[in-house]
Design a binder for these strands. Sequence first.
RNA 1: GGCCCUGUGGUCUAGCGGUUAGGACGGCGGCCUCUCACGCCGCAAUCCCGGGUUCAAGUCCCGGCAGGGUCACCA
Length: 505
Amino acid sequence: MTSDGPQIPEQTANQQDPGRMPPRVRIAPSPTGDPHVGTAYIGLFNYVFARKHGGTFILRIEDTDRVRSSLSSEQAIISALQWLGLTWDEGPDVGGPHAPYRQSERLDLYKRQAQVLLDKGAAYRCFCTKARLDELREQQRASKAAHYGYDRHCRELDPAQSQARAEAGETHVVRMKMPTVGETVVVDGLRGSIHRANAESDDQVIVKSDGFPTYHLANVVDDHDMGITHVIRGEEWISSTPKHVVLYEMFGWEPPRWYHIGLLRNPDKSKLSKRKNPVSIDYYRDLGYLPETLLNFLGTLGFSFGDDKERFSVAEMTEVFDWSKVSTGGPVFDQAKLAAFNADDIRALSIDELHARVMATVLSEDRIKAMLTVAQQRIDLLDDLIPYVSFFFGGSVDLAPVLPKFRIKKRSRADVTGILERYLEDIELDARARGFTGEGLEAFSREFCERHQWKARELFTLLRLAVTGRTASPGLFETLQICGKDRVRRRIREVIAVLRAGEDW
RNA sequence: GGCCCUGUGGUCUAGCGGUUAGGACGGCGGCCUCUCACGCCGCAAUCCCGGGUUCAAGUCCCGGCAGGGUCACCA
């Protein structure tokens, strides 16, 4: 299976000597939403590490979650990473020696490997129902149990009987048979040895009832198959890494080296989340951050260049990169500092360069034409254009003049705030709205109104006020489309914050 | 709650037994200037706590505490 992949001299691959063979690293985003800055952050470290050592940087799409994954999200991730310039050597779009690079297209491999584990007695079929598991979890929570995991109910079922039940069509999952004694050590290149008693880990599901593998199986199988030498990923994975180590042992494979990078945080120190901070790479792109600036900023989080230098390019970072310069704490993603970096970089551009950047982004031909299309009927002089379309630009909009208009007859302040919050959330859930085209948004929005028993007129007014800061604008949905998803979301979020802070009416 | 990770100004970080604890963002004050912005100068602000070890601890050890992650048929 890996006959063409390099065998990794793991024994010699210590921190001083990253291995004689060039490293192979990957990022493995899940295409379940907008491209996340966390992906860019982890991608940066993987990219730099690979380039530093003349290795290979791979993009693998982890789309084993059948219900949440979408091709549009995958495309968005690819284009966001391309915008940043983190180019990969192998991936779903460019192919490579270990294609396919999309997990949904590698099902046979996982199925085969799961069978290997089953045959070895290292895994077993579990027929427990969702209801039983929910109840179990509930009980554990209620009784404040020391351990919350699966109770291994099906672990000792007779394999032959299990197989017969499976063949008879009984729905089941496959779980790994975690050792119940001893401990597993994860050697982390950043944090040293992490010990964990095996009894702490439960029998993780490795194949779901729909036949798709879970992350744990797919990730181990693919990393091995693709010859991944160093797994550089987020800290959130630390607690399941012992399971991964055990999986490698069960297969008899040499594990990669692990490096767990600290998680990006919200200002309140919790894990970075879209409710508390813009997390979409698209947001930063569409609001006019420079890609090299975003990368530089990300580079200063968790990594220190040395010599008090913090403005550096990816190429420079690559030159001096060393794990000893990487810290393990979870850095807060500070918008103000990013903005300051961006301001500096804009100032450093020549006028010609600046012009080129602006024309390629906020004033791109497509965008201007879209604006002209909606402005044509509404301006009398050519010179009226810019004032008229001003709300298509910039982050926030001045709400002060329209704030009183948010008061809608027979609706409380809480009603208004609530419906806007709900709208913001539901955009994510609806495929048409997610695409953010005028048509899709309109269909979604009308349905949304019906569902919540709001008149279209009421909600649409709120949206217009929130997004444009005006009582009159071009058609709402074409306006939303041109503004773009991230600007729209930001402005709605800001309105919500303002309304929430105010007195009831 | 169990387990695990982390702990230098508000934030990102440097430091690796002896430093006036350095830089950056932000804040504050000033200079420049027709205004604003830029730019420049300056100021305030930090070693989580408690024990050890040591002539000497932000740096080493132990114990607390705090924050975070994770305990899914999501990754």
